[in-house]
Amino acid sequence: MTGTSTRPLLDVRDLVVRYGALTAVDHVSFALEPGETLALDGPSGCGKSSTALAVLQLRRPDAGEVHFEGRELTTLTDRELRPLRPRMQPVFQDPYGSLSPRHRIRDAVAEPLKAQGRWSTADGPAKVAELLDRVGLDPSYGERRPDELSGGQCQRVGIARALASDPRLLVLDEPVSALDPSVRAGVLNLLADLQDDLGLGYLFICHDRDVVRHFADRVVELREGRVSGSWRPRRSAAAPR
């Protein structure tokens, strides 16, 4: 689904990320419209995840610009970034690794609400239950811990936690690569439905060409840290959307 705004939701210009003498991201540029899924595709080590971290400002780039909702992020201090961070949320590859094994699911989903000062004992539990229901989990799962859930269920919890911040952009870093094929389709369908309902933009990091072809609106190919091409997939009838 592609938005109609004249301004990109995300506009990345000449992004550079270096680790010592290694240039992991070499002048990468792309733009993502509101409500669009833009995939970064390419082999392992091509710079996809480094690009995602730089977009989120979890790893400050060495050069280039990242414009989100019209604001240039690379010049902002951490304090200035703080009110913008809820609007751009990550969903990581490892569904178990992103959740504390000591915390119940309800606490994991509530954590962003509490961190942002949006939690109250009056309506907080109902909000958590609503978020779990939104990602296809019975609210009773809030009483469980991550090791009592499957990988697909944990990834749904990760998505619920991201949604708690009312984001406009989700940065999905290989969100289904660790899941079984049947579970993978269900999570992709959930993401597609959420995008249709909420108008979210997705920066979708993936190396599986079939998944990219079925899920993305546009694809930017990365090779050795550089953009090697871009294309629009033709979604097949068997697409998980």
Rank of each mutant, 00 (worst) to 15 (best):
T4P: 04
T4D: 11
P8L: 11
V12H: 01
V12W: 00
R13P: 04
V16G: 06
Y19H: 15
Y19A: 14
A21N: 09
A21F: 03
L22M: 13
L22R: 12
T23R: 13
V25H: 07
V28C: 03
F30T: 07
F30I: 10
L38H: 01
A39V: 07
G45R: 09
K48M: 01
A52R: 03
A52E: 07
L53E: 09
L53K: 10
A54F: 00
Q57F: 01
L58A: 12
R60A: 15
E65C: 12
F68R: 02
E69D: 15
T74M: 08
E80K: 15
E80F: 01
R82G: 02
P83M: 14
L84I: 07
R85Y: 05
R85P: 06
P90L: 14
P90C: 05
F92N: 12
Y96S: 10
S98T: 08
L99Y: 09
H103A: 10
R104C: 11
A108D: 00
A108C: 11
A110D: 02
A110M: 00
K114I: 01
Q116G: 06
G117Y: 10
S120R: 10
A122T: 11
A122I: 09
V128E: 02
A129L: 03
E130L: 10
L131E: 01
L131C: 04
G136N: 05
G136R: 07
L137K: 10
P139W: 08
P139T: 14
G142K: 01
D147H: 15
G151E: 07
V157F: 06
A160Q: 09
S165M: 14
V171H: 06
S177Q: 10
R184Q: 15
G186W: 01
L188F: 02
L190H: 04
L194I: 03
L194A: 08
D197V: 05
G201Y: 02
V212D: 00
A216F: 00
A216N: 04
R218T: 11
V219Y: 00
R223H: 12
E224A: 13
V227H: 08
V227P: 01
S230D: 15
P233I: 12
R235T: 09
P240D: 15
